[in-house]
Design a protein around this nucleic acid. Structure first.
Lengths: 416, 416
DNA sequence: ATGAAAGCGCTAACAG
DNA sequence: CTGTTAGCGCTTTCAT
């Protein structure tokens, strides 16, 4: 049985909720008679309320209904210019901002995007994925989205488990960065939640993704080593060969050799390490040296690996690049800070993150959009580790770093 | 005038909302007679609904009211063990998860925390603040919070402007990382939104913050250079002297010299560069060399600066550390990857981020908690750039890096 | 210990 | 073009 509240009672509740419960008690004591001061009180509240204005306040002040205000806010419907002006002014005067969660509840859209990567990538805090994340984050603002980042286990019991924000329906879409568990991707797909992969793709599945031209990139690097520097004995060092990108890089290395009719030497393909890390590069190189293999250049699966390679070479008393040239992949910050500076394939990390975000927003806003694969080009950045100190640009001329773009030949300068 | 909806009408709406509007039309055509299939239909929905179960579904299935379910979920109220079991089972069976935004609307708590740093720090993507962020992010999960990251302008028209998530009331508290505009901090303070500063503090304000023992750290480093290696001519290179942390490091440098009665030489205090960057370090060092200043060691304000210093020294044909020793600050990843590896002061970045998160959650959950300043200790990590290759640990023994802890030294590490 | 009911602030369908 | 109204899914008195 619904009990009608008296004016005073309502008021008490209001105060008790929005201010201090003790004030409500005072009011209760004072308000012996039942008056409907609702309206006056709301005006009072408007002036003293420590809480932000609501859509109701705006409506009252503008002398229109809440729906009209909503239409104005969302630009979703015809509103006469005068009314719009009134509403806009009220919003301005009250400093009104719609609350995110209230909109979410009513509209089923959260304005959040989930960013998922493996704890592996996270805990090793690889600058590579950090950059991608930052790229997405930055772009997200342009579309008025927030990004919620989380990590998942690559394997083990929790591997297929949905992140919290999906269970709580707290995101409108998801970006997967790097090598995530395929079952997880499939589950998200089944849930019907829009998603995009970055630097990853699922075999035999046409999911939307943003990847680099991994194989062509390495192929180009090998081409440079052979054509410009006359290398013939070129090694390839990588780990984590399960990652599609890494595998593609190996393929690119092979194609590169093939382009020049150089026979493959399996002993120079070092993919035995579990990770593409500095440690992995170091150990693999030590082993090659111990096996007395001949090589004058090393192409690696990423910059971290290259650092390990360089370290091992130096410890063995070999000069870089005079005795052995080294090429990395990614162009992380440290690549231009090590000595000698590292020739590497620059991946447009932030740009990839931004691209992923844009594509995801598209899908969110136009459900049923077809999957699409985007391949972004990398650039070969020539530095000391393959060209030598004399020929490579000096530190302070970063803008003049020589860069070989995928499209053209030896295009000079221009840093992206 | 409220119009009562018939059973069919209700059903149509339901379907139209939760499924496909076209289905609703079909139903409308079929349901000529007015039946109240509400109950049956809800059971049907329960089985086929692509949407997640709601608290109502749980209540119905458990045969209790929604309030009881709420009590169970939040552990906020007395519920008989049997009822609790029933509810828990229903939740389990339905795979129910409360929606974040619905809770927010009802409870006024969002479960989000804002993370604010300047676009400066962001766009230069300094690994330092990235690590702090990751530390907070990781810890946030333990407390069931999400982190929303955003950047603000350090200066200019937008400098004092509130980030979106504050306007939209989309966070329960805020973490400020690094040097943010003081007016912004003050505004957040006035808004009554809980906040914590990391690696920053506002002069003459007792705001809660997590900072390192900047001055003591550098003092210890100087002490090491003097006591262990006999240096007397020690330079200090930094930029961005407005940042409290950087200023404190300069103070530490001065104290360090004082400890050994070494007179200060203003020409060896290079703080003219705008930023603590590789470029800044490089240029400052070039200038010192051009001015023919004598120095056998350089203490820098951060690792990036140190890299620039090393580069300039090498270009000048000086050996590190034989001719000049170098000490950094932060211990970013690259510090152990450069050649020679960099002696530096390790800042527990992730730990600081986590600490900030914990402190913030405390404040959020117990409003009115007093401000508190936390000083975390740094460690002096000895590597090749001051000890030389022979004495410093080899690459692969990272765990055996020699570390001097603040406690172990002869210095007092309390900071006001 | 449990349930009924009143919101939280907003959107969107629908009626005028 | 504008207003009325019914929710969205949950929390939180308050009464029982």
């Amino acid at each position: 049985m619904k009990k009608l509240l008296t004016g005073t009672e309502k008021l008490c509740r209001l105060w008790s909720k929005r201010f201090d419960p003790s004030l409500a008690l005072v009011l209760r004591a004072v308000g012996g008679e039942e008056l409907d001061f609702r309206c006056e009180m709301e005006l009072v509240l408007e002036r003293f309320d420590p809480m932000q204005a609501t859509i109701k306040d705006v409506a009252r002040r503008a002398g229109v209904s809440v729906s009209t205000v909503s239409l104005v806010i969302n630009n979703s419907g015809p509103v006469s210019p005068e009314t719009r002006q009134k509403v806009l002014r009220a919003i301005e005067e009250l400093g009104y901002h719609p609350r995110r969660f209230a909109r979410s509840l009513a509209s089923k859209r959260t304005g959040n995007i989930g960013f998922i990567l493996t704890s592996d990538h996270f805990s090793r805090a690889e600058p590579f994925y950090t950059k991608i994340f930052l790229g997405s984050e930055f772009e997200a603002r342009n579309y008025d989205y927030y990004i919620l980042l989380t990590t998942v286990e690559k394997r083990g019991k929790n591997a297929g488990q949905l992140p919290r924000f999906l269970l709580e329906r707290n995101v409108d879409g998801v970006i997967f960065a790097g090598y995530v568990p395929v079952p997880l991707v499939e589950r998200v797909y089944e849930l019907g939640v829009p998603f995009v992969l970055v630097d990853f793709l699922v075999k035999d599945r046409p999911f939307s993704c943003i990847v680099m031209d991994n194989d062509q990139a390495v192929r180009r690097a090998v081409g440079h080593l052979v054509a410009e520097h006359g290398h013939r004995r070129i090694a390839f060092v990588a780990g984590e060969i399960g990652h599609p990108s890494i595998r593609a890089r190996l393929e690119g290395y092979r194609k590169g050799l093939e382009d020049f009719g150089i026979p493959r030497d399996p002993r120079l393909e070092r993919t035995e390490e579990p990770h593409c890390s500095m440690d992995g590069g170091y150990r693999a190189t030590r082993r090659m040296l111990e096996e007395k293999l001949e090589f004058t250049a090393v192409v690696t699966a990423n910059d971290a690996t290259a650092f390990g390679v360089m370290r091992a070479l130096k410890e063995a008393g070999l000069r870089i690049p005079e005795d052995v040239a080294v090429v990395g992949f990614d162009d992380i910050d440290a690549a231009s800070q090590v000595d000698p500076t590292l020739t590497t394939l620059r991946v447009p990390k932030e740009e990839m993150g931004a691209l992923a975000l844009r594509r995801l927003v598209e899908v969110i806003e136009r459900p049923g959009l077809a999957f699409e694969r985007t391949v972004v080009p990398t650039e070969l950045v020539l530095r000391e580790s393959c060209c030598g100190r004399a020929r490579a640009p000096k530190l302070m001329d970063l803008t003049k770093e020589k860069i070989i773009l995928p499209e053209g030949g030896d295009v000079d300068n221009t840093q992206a």
